[in-house]
């Protein structure tokens, strides 16, 4: 079962030098992620989950250990090759959306493709439109980012993360800035994308959000202390319906 893993992490260690003190953010992590996984990476702050995500996102390099992404050992790559990997294989969703201000949803979604010289303008536009349609924003394509609500902005960000057909989406507290109703909507969208076969790694510290994923990985003090499949994980759609019933019992 190890052979078909998208991501294989072996004995990963990461040390930071803070002042004169060495901080061991990761102390030997082993983790495999398979196609179609929807992994919640959980843990308190300081547990190493953000460091883990940065390394998985090829934004940072481990001090020790190996990180193999689709058969490529990331350790051996230089800065530019890492940027290329990020452009072609990874999708990012951030807590604060990070959309370009005063720029249309469509242009925001096109952005990753602009850094890919192979893709022509026509294809870029078509793929961005398709991505926006799949997150349910077909009618908002030309809205500027500041004209959209928080939930809609995060949808644009998700569309941006899937536009390059990544092997995995890395989401960092993607619901952290949203109210619970909108959070559930976003989780419903993630579940939908996951059911279409997209692999997602989702960092969160909220157990109720993690409940929507299919696998939970718990970090504490730089090591994984629990890695379990969620039995009968909740559907975000159902949760939304239940929530609607609670607020309007007569409906």
């Amino acid at each position: 079962m190890q052979n078909n893993a998208i991501i294989e992490v072996r004995h990963l260690k990461k040390d930071y030098l803070v002042g004169n003190e060495i901080v061991h953010a990761l102390r030997g992590v082993d983790l495999s992620i398979y196609p179609g996984d929807f992994v919640a990476i959980m843990g308190a702050s300081g547990s190493g989950k953000s460091t883990m995500l940065n390394i998985l996102g090829c934004l940072d390099k481990p001090t020790e250990g190996d990180y193999i992404l689709e058969g490529i050992n990331v350790k051996s790559l230089n800065k530019n090759q890492l940027a290329e990997i990020r452009n072609l294989k990874l999708g990012f969703v951030f807590q604060s959306y990070n959309l370009l201000p005063r720029t249309s949803a469509l242009e925001n979604v096109e952005l990753p493709l602009l850094y890919n010289p192979v893709i022509k303008a026509k294809e870029r536009r078509a793929r961005a439109e398709a991505a926006l349609e799949s997150v349910g924003l077909a009618d908002r394509m030309n809205h500027l980012s500041n004209q959209l609500s928080g939930g809609q902005q995060q949808r644009v960000a998700i569309a941006r993360s899937i536009v390059n057909d990544p092997v995995i989406i890395l989401a960092d507290e993607a619901t952290g800035n949203l109210d619970s109703h909108t959070s559930y909507e976003i989780m419903a969208l993630f579940q939908e994308l996951n059911s279409q076969g997209i692999t997602i790694a989702f960092v969160t510290h909220e157990p109720d959000i993690a409940a929507f994923t299919s696998r939970n990985v718990l970090f504490r003090d730089g090591v994984i202390i629990k890695d379990s499949l969620t039995q009968n994980h909740m559907s975000a759609r159902e949760a939304l319906k239940a929530m609607a019933l609670e607020t309007h019992p007569e409906g």
Binding site: G57, L59, K79, N80, A83, E84, R86, N87, L88, F92, F94, N98, L100, L111, P112, Y115, N116, R160, N164
Partner: peptide
């Protein structure tokens, strides 16, 4: 914005 551009594959 620069951070984002780098994250989604903008080389230095």
């Amino acid at each position: 914005e620069i951070g984002l551009r780098m994250a989604i594959g903008g080389k230095s």
